[in-house]
């Protein structure tokens, strides 16, 4: 057995190379080294490469995610600020419109009032005018009636008294007609 050989070889100095499996030792070293080199070239190297690549990929993905997260947070903040701004702006606009409306209403009412006053004045003036005209017309009528009455008086043989009474009556009538 090789164990015996080994023990013998360890104890006996003579013929150590005959007893010890020197060839096996060299072969083991040779095979192991060869295996290690081949595996490094064909298996471990590429495998390690791809594992490193993956680690890099994951790291970069994490970085990317972190970055986009920060970016979206920034965007959200921005949007929020914008929304707030828009809201205050809208409020200002509404406020403005209300004020403007109030002012406009007051103005319209003012003009309406002025217009009404003017119309009333106009109407009053017109009424006065019409009244004047009517009086004038009545007067003219009265004169023509007086003339008519006079004609009648002149045409008929009337007494002084009759004449007078007729005129007075006519005047009276005219006065009532007014």
């Amino acid at each position: 057995m090789s164990l015996d050989q080994f023990v013998l070889a360890a104890s006996a100095g003579d013929g150590i190379l005959d007893k010890l499996n020197t060839g096996d030792i060299l072969a083991t070293l040779f095979f192991f080294t060869l295996l290690m080199i081949l595996l490094k070239k064909f298996a471990w190297g590429p495998l390690m490469g791809i594992m490193d690549q993956r680690a890099e990929l994951i790291a970069s993905e994490i970085d990317e995610a972190e970055k986009s997260r920060a970016e979206s947070a920034k965007l959200l903040e921005e949007q929020r600020a914008l929304l707030k701004e828009a809201r205050t702006e809208a409020q200002a606009i509404v406020e403005n419109a209300k004020q403007q409306g109030d002012a406009q209403r007051a103005e319209i009412m003012e003009t309406a009032r002025a217009e009404a006053a003017r119309l009333r004045e106009n109407a009053a003036a017109e009424i006065a005018n019409e009244k004047e005209k009517a009086i004038q017309a009545v007067r003219e009528e009265f004169v023509s009636m007086s003339i008519l009455a006079a004609e009648k008086v002149l045409g008929k043989e009337v007494s002084e008294e009759d004449n007078r009474a007729l005129i007075e009556e006519t005047i009276q009538k005219a006065g009532e007609g007014r």
Binding site: S2, L17, D18, K19, L20, N21, T22, G23, D24, L26, A27, T28, F31, F32, L34, L35
Partner: peptide, 15 residues
């Protein structure tokens, strides 16, 4: 050198 061909064979197979 002393070789044990069985060892050589099995080493080769293992590798």
């Amino acid at each position: 050198l002393t070789f044990n061909p069985s060892n050589i064979l099995m080493l080769a197979v293992t590798c």
